[in-house]
């Protein structure tokens, strides 16, 4: 079941520590994303798995085999880089065949099969320079998959592409994964990419893992304020914990499911789309004024001033529908509800 096991991986460079004891289990066949801001250690971790930059401490177990000291060539994986790293002086077919050790006919058959798989059946005789960025990345994918590796590593594979190609390739990689069932680890700083593609997301920050979970868990139940902030938009309200899950924010008493000890300084988190403007039959109802109303496209983003919450403004997303129905305008008064089950309360570190 476990395909890859990382045990207390530490990676030190001269002056700083890029990974501070990372442990992780990767299941066979799953699509895992390492997500985090630049410098969080996600690429370093991928390169540790690949054996390209060996860890300073810790153990890497692949298929139950300790490969901590093994060179990349002994680890059985395929890798795709942001820069494609295609060999420009070799044709597409020769690039794909680069890692194959078959006879001529079998090589040709395998190359044709892979080029068909990535949707470039006619491109074999071309040189990489003659292809678009998205096509080059598909060739890189075919080259990585050609020797049928057990593990596919993708290092920001879509970052160098423009938005439209990125969306298309995202779908194609996901389809490939479904069809081949190969364990895949992708590094990305793009939360949308991670949320749409991954079976599980590993959110990293400052060389440690903040949270591991399905996209839904990560989005709905962020384990730390960092995850809450990094994935999706979020309101952060400073407060003090009270009795029975009550949190004091400004003059307001907000009910939550928090079990923090009374008197603790806390941060209350709420997603903008969870601010309720209709059907306000419940607790946590407050009066607010609309200070700004920004048209985003599918929805409007409002900045609400609720005197009860103190000086902090509340960001709320309202559907175009709702804005029309309630006739929301800047300067208008709007009572809103902050649903108890959607409030997430974190102790202030």
């Amino acid at each position: 079941m476990t395909h890859l096991h990382l045990d207390s991986i530490v990676k030190r460079y001269d002056s700083f520590t890029a990974l501070k004891g990372v442990s992780l289990e990767v299941k066979r066949g799953e699509f895992l994303c390492f997500l985090g801001p630049s410098g969080c250690g996600k690429t370093t971790l991928l390169r540790v798995i690949a054996g390209l930059d060996p860890q300073s401490e810790g153990r890497v177990t692949l298929d139950g085999r300790d490969v901590s000291r093994q060179p990349p060539s002994a680890r059985n994986y395929g890798i795709v880089f942001q820069s494609y790293a295609l060999f420009p002086n070799l044709t597409v077919a020769k690039n794909v065949a680069y890692g194959l050790k078959l006879d001529r006919a079998a090589t040709k058959a395998r190359v044709d099969e892979l080029l068909a798989l990535v949707g470039l059946p006619e491109s074999g005789p071309k040189y990489p320079g003659q292809l678009s960025g998205g096509q080059q990345q598909r060739v890189a994918l075919a080259r990585a998959l050609a020797p049928s590796p057990g593990l596919l590593l993708l290092d920001e594979p879509l970052s160098a592409l423009d938005a439209r190609v990125r969306g298309h390739l995202r779908q194609q990689i996901k389809d490939l994964h479904r069809r081949l069932g190969i364990t895949t680890i992708m590094v990305t700083h793009d939360q949308e990419e991670a949320l749409t593609m991954a079976d599980r997301i590993v959110v990293m920050n400052h060389g440690v893992i903040d949270q591991v979970g399905t996209p839904d868990e990560i989005y709905r139940h962020p384990a730390t304020p960092f995850v809450a902030d990094f994935v999706g938009a979020m309101n952060f309200l400073p407060g003090i914990a009270g009795e029975d899950g009550v949190v004091h924010v400004g003059d307001a008493r907000l009910h939550s499911n928090s079990d923090l000890a009374p008197g603790a300084a806390v941060t209350v988190c709420l997603r903008p789309e969870d601010v309720v403007a209709r059907h306000q039959n419940g607790a946590n109802r407050i009066e607010a004024t609309i200070e700004a109303l920004e048209f985003i496209g599918p929805f409007h983003r409002a900045r609400l001033h609720a005197p009860e919450l103190g000086s902090h403004r509340l960001t709320a997303d309202f559907s175009a529908n709702l804005v029309r129905d309630l006739d929301l305008v800047i300067g208008g008064r709007l009572p809103v509800m902050l649903p108890r089950e959607r409030l997430r309360v974190f102790p202030v570190a």
């Binding site: 045990d7 300790d66 901590s68 000291r69 974190f346 102790p347």
Partner: peptide, 25 residues
């Protein structure tokens, strides 16, 4: 931490065995 967050799996499991030190390839 709130109840739901506490129910989440702990993000970092403590190493059970002593990790291999400075592995030389």
């Amino acid at each position: 931490m709130s109840a739901t967050a506490a129910a989440m799996p702990k993000p970092q499991s403590k190493p059970k065995t002593k990790p291999a030190r400075s592995p030389r390839p």
